[in-house]
Amino acid sequence: MAELRYVRALNQALSDAMAEDPSVIVFGEDIAAAGGPFGVTRGLLEAYGEDRVRDTPISEATIVGAAVGAAMTGLKPVVEIMFMDFVAIAMDAIVNQAAKARFMFGGQGSVPMVVRLPHGGGVSAGPQHSQCLEAWFAHIPGLKVVCPASVADAYGLMRAAIDDPDPVIMVENKALYARKEDVPDDLPAVEIGKARIARPGRDATIVTYGAALYTALEAADTLAGEGVEVEVIDLRSLQPWDEAAVLESLSRTHRLVVAHEAVEAFGIGAEIAARMADIGFDELDGPIIRVGAPFMPVPFAKTLEQGYLPDAGRVADAVRKTLA
């Protein structure tokens, strides 16, 4: 066991993948010489050289488009878009090219590439540096979307994403980069599409992912003091998501809350709620309640952003409401 930061776990995963497979290359804005704005790629240039670790100009559309072409020609590119918000410029390459290549070319080949997208608020970064846009990608057939919350999963999902033959959107919450955990020395890859029970409980289920996991766990602590034992499920993968694990938990607790930092309307939670209302209808003893950000851009001022981000109080209230 050793203490490891989330950002170092990502870095280690990239380094281990590059050491094992010469076709893995990394490129993006300021990721080589400067080591990345959040330090995720620090040291890779020195270890693997400028052929495989490349600083790009500020050209998001071409960064991702080039990843598609490189992936079609024998490489496994991992590209970084500095803030998830900037991916709006690169959507054609992801949505029309990477996601569709396998299908529209009749399964001739896959496009093994990873697009790393740091998301999330809480640092007064304002409306264009804070958004959680993962639902956009989960809506597109052909893409996989993962969002690790724990340090072990940061490593394991990065390795799985790089190994995956299809394009994977790797969503990393900026607030988690500094997080520390004790983890085993030899971390395994984590299968894409499998959730984990982060806290077992019998009275209600909270389904969540990313940094909102810690909000949900805080709410579960509060509710435990009231005699309510909440089960918290960390989805880890959003596309595909572990429908069976959520249904299994619901079949024991009969109450469901879905919590995420992203805007609540038309979000990941809407999909989970709708599926469970369908396939889990007979298990439900209360309404499915979503907790997400309000329908507004992420605000800048501290007091405003505090009001915007879903907190443990709102998650606990949602559980109380479904139990009422």
């Binding site: 290359i25 488009g65 080039a66 072409g69 020609t73 029309n96 529209m104 070319f105």
Partner: peptide
């Protein structure tokens, strides 16, 4: 690597493919 329904979309794809030729030293 494909005809394309999006005007201009082939350019970065060819650039990326050329990057793969360069890194993999295919001579292509």
């Amino acid at each position: 690597l494909g005809a394309n329904g999006i005007v201009g979309a082939g350019m970065p794809i060819a650039v990326g493919s050329a990057l793969a030729h360069q890194v993999r030293k295919t001579g292509g």
